Amino acid sequence: MYQPEEIRILIVDDEPSILKFLSLGLRNEGYQVMTAEDGLSGVNAAQEFEPHIVILDVMMPGMDGYEVCKLLKDIGNVAIIMLTAKDEVEDRVKGLNLGADDYMSKPFSFQELLARIQARIRNQFPHMMGDVQVGPFRIDDRRKEIRYEQRVLSLSATEYELLKYMVVNHGLVLSKATILDKVWGYDFGGQENIVEVYVRSIREKLEDREHQLIRTIRGAGYRVDLP
């Protein structure tokens, strides 16, 4: 597993109590932490600190979280988890369209935030992880190898990236459009049914005949359920 002290986390929030609570908790977990109390300070801090993860409040005076998110995504590779007191679908969609990688509504569980941070590290910074155990799966990104129940799966390069993406995001419903964006890339001009073809192949290699591991959520996409 990765060493937390290698991971830099920037917290941008205009509530001092949130900054204190999160910075103390994350430092206790071993992460490097920097804080900023407004959007502009957050952007400046990101340029100096070069964080791997940014925990970003949406509702801030002046430069709000949406604008900060867009600027940070233009700067470089950073995983952004947005925090908001709102729980409206439109707000989430707006943040995700601007490049946010995850979303949490206040109040939230610190343990859930830790889990989401770890998921983002697995997904966006796998080189810092070495090999990762996720349920019955062991993902070795350096060798581009996935073991399932101690058995090395014979996967093509695309099958590897697809299964890795689905496993590290286990429990979440992933639409075909999202999978295409994350695995094939935004400039991929193919059809969504190619996802079905690859999922079918991976299920065969997992011997998942009853679709208990990779479930089809009708009208929504796919979800990996771990034992």
Rank of each mutant, 00 (worst) to 15 (best):
Q3I: 10
E6K: 15
I7K: 13
R8L: 07
I9D: 09
I11G: 01
V12C: 03
V12Q: 01
E15R: 07
F21N: 11
F21W: 07
F21S: 14
R27I: 13
N28W: 13
N28E: 15
Q32T: 12
M34I: 12
T35E: 12
A36E: 12
A36S: 15
V43N: 08
N44I: 12
N44H: 14
A45T: 14
A46G: 06
H52K: 10
I53E: 08
L56K: 01
L56Q: 03
V58C: 03
M60N: 02
M60E: 04
G65V: 01
V68M: 06
V68Y: 07
C69Q: 12
K70L: 09
K70I: 02
L71N: 12
L71C: 06
L72K: 05
D74V: 11
D74H: 14
N77R: 13
I80G: 02
I81D: 01
M82A: 10
K86L: 14
K86G: 05
K86M: 11
K86Q: 11
D87H: 10
D87Y: 03
E88P: 00
E88D: 13
D91G: 06
K94W: 02
K94N: 07
G95W: 00
L98C: 01
A100Y: 00
D101S: 10
D101I: 01
D101C: 06
D102R: 08
D102I: 05
M104P: 06
K106P: 07
K106N: 02
K106S: 06
S109C: 04
Q111T: 15
L113N: 05
R116F: 03
R116T: 05
I117R: 12
Q118N: 15
R122P: 03
Q124A: 05
F125Q: 13
H127T: 08
D131A: 10
V134K: 05
G135E: 09
G135C: 08
G135T: 08
P136G: 05
R138F: 02
R143C: 09
R143H: 12
I146R: 03
E149L: 11
Q150L: 08
L153P: 02
S154C: 02
L155A: 14
S156F: 04
A157C: 00
T158W: 01
L162G: 09
L163D: 09
L163H: 09
K164H: 15
V167F: 10
V168Q: 10
G171M: 09
L172S: 13
V173E: 03
L174D: 03
L174N: 12
L174V: 05
A177W: 00
T178F: 00
D181W: 01
K182V: 00
G185L: 08
Y186M: 11
D187A: 13
D187I: 12
D187N: 13
G189W: 03
E192H: 03
N193K: 11
I194S: 04
V195D: 00
Y198A: 04
R200V: 11
S201A: 15
S201P: 09
I202G: 10
I202K: 06
R203E: 10
L206N: 09
E207D: 15
D208A: 10
R209Y: 13
E210Y: 06
H211G: 15
L213P: 06
I214H: 08
I214G: 03
I214N: 08
I214F: 09
I214D: 06
R215N: 11
T216L: 15
T216I: 14
R218H: 14
R218I: 14
G221L: 01
G221C: 06
Y222V: 03
Y222G: 05
Y222M: 04
L226C: 07
